[in-house]
């Protein structure tokens, strides 16, 4: 199994479904420490990403992700738009025409680097990075050990879930939650939660 163009479109479409289904949970997490709009914003942004991929048949998996990124940047309205949008565009540039397990690992790493550069967050700041960074490591370890795309994506999704759980005791150092100082402790980070859904979507669509 490779991440071909159709599977890439299915990935983003599945991510949009998972985020829409969990919109109220994401919004509740964001209401605790953020501005309470993450679920609605990202549902709108991912719907726009799906639309953007449908406007002109993408010629490659990379171009599909770049189109999705443009949709996210244009329509999300909150900080997650430029962050995920930049992440998917970087992943798309890295992926190009490829799609084997090693190339997908490199694309996920490019996504991580793009989000780190734009947002300036590092692991431990209670952000998207706390789910995405361990997911990239887990994906690449699995790929290095001979796992296929689906098994590597499952490992990444599980690592993202663990990374999300590990954000609970962290004090936020980025975004609105950082103004709360120690009061941001004791909650899951909504950005890490949506990252876990996006990686779960990749595992879902690559299942045999």
């Amino acid at each position: 199994m490779t991440l071909d163009t159709a599977t890439t479109i299915a990935w983003i479409t599945r991510a949009a479904e998972l985020v829409r289904a969990d919109e109220s949970r994401l919004t509740a997490l964001d209401a605790a420490i953020g501005d309470g709009d993450h679920g609605a914003n990202l549902a709108r942004g991912l719907a726009a990403a799906v639309t953007a991929m449908g406007e002109k048949e993408p010629e490659s998996p990379g171009k599909a992700l770049i189109a999705a990124g443009r949709g996210l940047v244009a329509k999300t309205g909150g900080a997650s738009g430029p962050l995920y949008g930049t992440g998917f565009r970087r992943a798309g540039k890295e992926l190009g025409d490829g799609g084997d397990v090693g190339q997908v690992g490199a694309a996920l790493e490019a996504m991580l680097r793009g989000i780190e550069e734009l947002g300036g967050a590092t692991q431990g700041d209670k952000t998207i990075i706390d789910a995405l960074a361990p997911a990239v490591v887990a994906f690449q370890e699995a790929a290095g050990n001979g796992s296929d795309l689906h098994a590597a994506a499952e490992a990444a999704a599980d690592a993202a879930d663990a990374g999300l759980a590990a954000t609970v005791p962290l004090q936020a150092r980025k975004g609105r939650a950082s103004y709360l100082g120690p009061r941001s402790v004791g909650h899951e980070d909504p950005g890490a939660a949506s990252t876990a859904l996006i990686l779960r979507a990749l595992a879902d669509v690559t299942a045999p």
Partner: peptide
């Protein structure tokens, strides 16, 4: 702040 900064940086890129 926040998304204003990230969106402006994205447009600049």
């Amino acid at each position: 702040m926040g998304s204003s900064v990230l969106t402006a940086k994205t447009l600049q890129a």
